[in-house]
Design a protein around this nucleic acid. Structure first.
Lengths: 120, 120
DNA sequence: CGGCATCCTGAACGATACTG
DNA sequence: CAGTATCGTTCAGGATGCCG
């Protein structure tokens, strides 16, 4: 458990921004096994449009977490892959996933309690 | 490293939603040492308005991560505190913070590279 | 002091259609 | 198949002012 400053550390905010949207962590996780083509990614993830996938993966590329490789073929072929930096983020992401696996139902139970308090 | 399904596990999405906004993780972290009054929280965090703090803390309360205690005094006094469930989230949050501490500059470097590629 | 009401802006996200 | 263009909705977040 880090005792370092946190709230005052801009890098911490930066890291959360990296995970603070719906698709970034999902796409990173979907790339954990190796390079993936957009079509594969979309199928693997489910419920993400072509447009949003492109936006997401470009954002990740901008932050140095994902690399893009385009082949000069017809039909076009593109592959996205985690960079070395991107791979280092898998552990923290997994930590959250593991937490969800362990405590997810407690959260849902709390939500249900609040919901029925509101409606009851 | 969990090898369990992830993208298909709704609880994982739920956990990310818990951290997928600007202030949730920050407020949780700010509460790690014990109960805090809203004023203390705002000072500790910095850059958060009263309105947004209230919204955030209420959201956390809804999800069972934070408890709210109001004292019948004048002037009014309120304290927010992590629940047992909320405390279990500190470890994953810290994992991200630690990652930021270690890799934050690499991300910023990547951003700078992209920025100057765009402007150059 | 805590917190609600109001108004506003920007960004994320989705649906659809289209280009190379 | 990959990606862009447009359009529209939704909502977090910020600013301000007011109430108990």
């Amino acid at each position: 458990m880090t005792t370092e400053p946190f709230l005052s550390d801009c890098r911490a905010r930066l890291a959360f921004d990296l995970l603070a949207n719906t698709w970034n962590p999902v796409v990173l996780w979907a790339l954990r096994d190796g390079p993936q083509r957009p079509g594969e990614l979309r199928e693997r993830i489910g419920g993400i449009s072509s447009k949003v996938l492109t936006e997401t993966v470009r954002r990740l590329e901008f932050n140095g977490l994902v690399s893009r490789r385009a082949y000069a073929e017809a039909p076009p072929r593109v592959e996205y892959e985690l960079t070395a930096l991107g791979r280092t983020l898998l552990a923290p992401i997994d930590a959250i996933g593991a937490w969800a696996f362990e405590h997810g139902d407690e959260v849902m139970a709390a939500q249900d309690r609040e919901d029925q308090r509101a409606s009851g």
